[in-house]
């Protein structure tokens, strides 16, 4: 099967990651993933108000996933909907499993991700960007979170679905986030039906895809801190 944009079944869309581009945040990341563009910022750890919301054993992760009104072809109402709240919750929990939250009791870490333009796979793009932003902010972590979606389109297993594929009838879409390099699954959702063989194939595809995403995340972080060269202003 040839895909809409001519990619192979196990090929990712082009990904570009830039680290530390927002001055006012402790950590930030700008990510372009095909036609998706995401901006992620991290503030904290910082004191939590009101204080009763704090946890004496760990830091609270306040993860916000929002789509800009102009991110989709028809204007989206700026008020967060059910979908955004659900994605914020599950992505926050996924990120919490990567961060050493117990090092900062009674604090909050604010993570904001904004989808500037959307073309399917935004939750994985946002999570990938958020984990790079956390690393940029110097928050101690077990590893980076690399996420990618895989699925079944017209009975063929494919990696990194784009909008046209996701909108095809009968498509199965499975966002998967891995804690890398440990390869622990921290987020797994699925929409649609698959048989056992397809399931094994898409899990393998997504795992390999995440490894590629991890390499790009690592590269972006290392590029931010060149060891040699002229002084950087």
């Amino acid at each position: 099967m040839t895909r809409y944009d001519g990619r192979k079944n196990d090929e990712l869309r082009p990904i570009k990651i830039q680290v530390g581009i927002i001055k006012n945040a402790d950590g930030s990341c700008y990510l372009e993933w095909g036609k998706n563009t995401v901006l992620a910022t991290v503030h904290g750890p910082k004191p939590i108000f009101p204080k009763h919301l704090g946890d004496e054993t760990k830091a609270i992760i306040d993860y916000r996933y929002r789509m800009a009104p102009f991110s989709v072809s028809e204007r989206k109402a700026p008020v967060p909907g059910k979908r955004e709240k659900e994605i914020s919750l599950v992505s926050g929990q996924a990120l919490e499993s990567a961060i050493f939250v117990e090092k900062f009791p009674n604090t909050v870490i604010d993570i904001d991700t904004i989808i500037l333009s959307a073309d399917a796979g935004t939750r994985v793009a946002a999570l990938t960007a958020a984990s790079v932003a956390c690393a940029n902010a110097g928050i101690p972590m077990k590893g980076l979170i690399s996420a990618v979606a895989a699925g079944v389109v017209n009975k063929e297993c494919v990696l990194d679905l784009m909008y046209e594929e996701e909108a095809t009838e009968g498509t199965t879409d499975m966002p998967l986030a891995l804690l890398m390099p440990q390869k622990e699954i921290v987020l797994l959702q699925m929409d649609g039906n698959v048989d056992r063989k397809q399931w094994e194939t898409i899990i393998e595809m997504a795992t390999k895809g995440s490894e590629k995403v991890y390499e790009l995340q690592k590269k972006a972080l290392l590029e931010k801190y060149p060891i040699e060269g002229e002084l950087d202003e």
């Binding site: 990567a98 101690p140 590893g143 980076l144 804690l179 390099p181 440990q182 995340q217 972080l221 801190y225």
Partner: peptide, 9 residues
Amino acid sequence: DKKIVVPGE
């Protein structure tokens, strides 16, 4: 030589 590492490395 200096080496930069990332979380989880």
